[in-house]
């Protein structure tokens, strides 16, 4: 899997957290994993199709999820209910949508499927690459991961003309 597929998601995550929650996001070092499995309590899986195929998995601690929604809603948020899960899914959806826009401008035409919520850490997802890349992030309200497994749908022929 090409490391260049990671940067659009990093940029999009940084922008969306700042825009929607006024949160600064610091990126940690990239790791590789042989499985795509939630690293924290609440996760959102988003499938990618088009020139790139695969999945993105966003994984957040429970308290961080509640705090994120609390910041957006401007009111106390204490339970992981359908409101919180829906908002979390949309945040991951918006990050992915922005990342795909960046990939489109790099000439990878892709689309995303609606977000799927995964609660708990038991469900392993299918991988399209031998290893998934994991990008850890830090914010003042907690740490989260974005895990990426993406491959090119077809052998791309670079036009030189």
């Amino acid at each position: 899997m090409k490391v260049e597929f990671v940067e659009p998601f990093v940029k999009a995550a940084r922008d969306v957290f700042q825009l929607m929650m006024d949160l600064d996001v610091r990126r940690g070092g990239l790791r590789a994993s042989e499985e795509l499995i939630p690293s924290k309590d609440a996760s959102v899986a988003i499938a990618v199709t088009g020139d790139l195929l695969g999945s993105i998995l966003y994984s957040f601690p429970k308290q961080m999820t509640l705090d994120m929604v609390e910041i957006m809603a401007g009111m106390p948020v204490e339970e992981m209910d359908s409101f919180v899960v829906s908002a979390l899914g949309e945040v991951a959806n918006i990050i992915s949508g922005n990342a795909v826009t960046y990939l489109n401008s790099a000439n990878y035409r892709c689309n995303i499927f609606p977000p799927q919520i995964v609660l708990g850490r038991d469900t392993a997802l299918d991988m399209v690459t031998p290893k998934a890349l994991i990008v850890p992030f830090q914010t003042r309200i907690g740490e989260f991961d974005i895990m990426i497994t993406l491959k090119e749908a077809n052998e791309r022929v670079e036009a030189l003309l």
């Binding site: 825009l19 409101f83 899960v85 908002a87 949309e90």
Partner: peptide
Amino acid sequence: TQNLVQEFGGKLMTWLIVHVAD
């Protein structure tokens, strides 16, 4: 139902923030 209304609430809130803030 509570679940469906809450799901709608999550979408409404995030859409409004992104639309207006961006």
